[in-house]
């Protein structure tokens, strides 16, 4: 990768231009990756910086530095209500979608049955359908059977699009496990339920945890489907969208940044824990 350190007797040091060109040639991919990461993280940094903006009503231009937004995150009207709404929706959705999706994943990986192809199709299609179509079609159902829009319609919609993602996540973990381990347990006179609870479940648990986190973050950040099916009910993304018309309070930036660090911490702790387990 680097230039040879031992002096080559015949050829003298190449001119600077050539050396720069060689260095760029050798590190082209790294330079490209750094630029790509700047592109990916620029809006994140922007959000974090502007959470300290002493902006007043609208957080569009930099006014001055302040801690006030962080010490008083509920200071702006309706911000915290919408966050609490999003968290309540997210918790119900995570619980139900994780259960339903995990059961489907078990059926797909551990059992042989008729209708596999249809099942796979019905799981793949929601992921291959744009959110406007998912949102508007569910809305036509609610409109036609006269269901009032609100908390529960949002929960129903979120569970619907989270199930598929839970299935693929748990399925990935489950199919990397050796089914013979369970068989071995049953050969040693464990009942099917005991083998499941003592052997399979602990091994699949990291996959289920990952699926639950994914479901929660998908639900928490969804805007398009929520917007169609929420009526007067406001979630955090919907609050931002509505507030954008008259100016988003800096507190929304504080909450977004805080969520970023909480999620990052959970992921890093998870990685650290799984590495410890592998080594120990």
């Amino acid at each position: 990768m680097s230039a040879p350190t031992t002096p080559v007797p015949v050829a003298s040091k190449p001119p600077t231009g050539v050396r720069i060109r060689n260095w760029i040639g050798n590190n082209l991919l790294r330079i490209y990756a750094v630029l790509a990461f700047i592109y990916l993280l620029l809006p994140v940094m922007y959000t974090f910086v502007f959470s300290f903006n002493d902006s007043g009503k609208s957080n569009l231009t930099w006014v001055g530095f302040t801690w006030n937004n962080w010490t008083n995150p509920c200071g702006a009207p309706d911000v915290c209500e919408s966050v609490i709404n999003s968290i309540s929706v997210g918790l119900v959705v995570t619980l139900v979608a994780t259960m339903l999706g995990t059961l489907i994943a078990f059926a797909l990986v551990r059992h042989r049955f008729r209708g596999r192809t249809t099942t796979n199709l019905l799981i793949f299609l929601p992921m291959a359908t744009p959110e406007v179509v998912l949102g508007s079609s569910l809305l036509t159902l609610f409109l036609n059977i006269l269901v009032p829009l609100g908390f529960w319609t949002v929960v129903i919609a979120h569970i619907m699009f989270c199930i598929s993602f839970v299935v693929v996540t748990v399925k990935a973990r489950l199919s990397s496990l050796d089914a013979n381990i369970e068989q071995a347990a049953m050969d040693l006179y464990a009942s099917e339920w005991q083998a499941f609870r003592r052997i399979t479940l602990p091994l699949v648990a990291p996959g289920i945890a990952a699926a639950a986190l994914l479901a929660f973050s998908l639900s928490f950040d969804d805007f398009i489907i929520t917007n169609f099916n929420s009526g007067q009910f406001t979630t955090f993304p919907k609050f931002i969208y509505v507030a954008d018309k008259r100016g988003i309070p800096a507190q929304a930036y504080v909450i977004a940044s805080a969520m970023f660090f909480i999620a990052l911490a959970i992921v890093l702790i998870g990685q650290f824990a799984s590495r410890r387990r592998k080594e120990g």
């Binding site: 990461f37 993280l41 994140v44 922007y46 959000t47 954008d244 988003i248 977004a256 990052l264």
Partner: peptide, 19 residues
């Protein structure tokens, strides 16, 4: 680096677009 690729997801999609 992989965590950094998914990290933007943890900030609201709308706020990133507004950024």
């Amino acid at each position: 680096l992989l965590v950094m690729v998914i990290a933007p997801f943890f900030v609201s999609f709308l706020l990133r677009t507004i950024a």
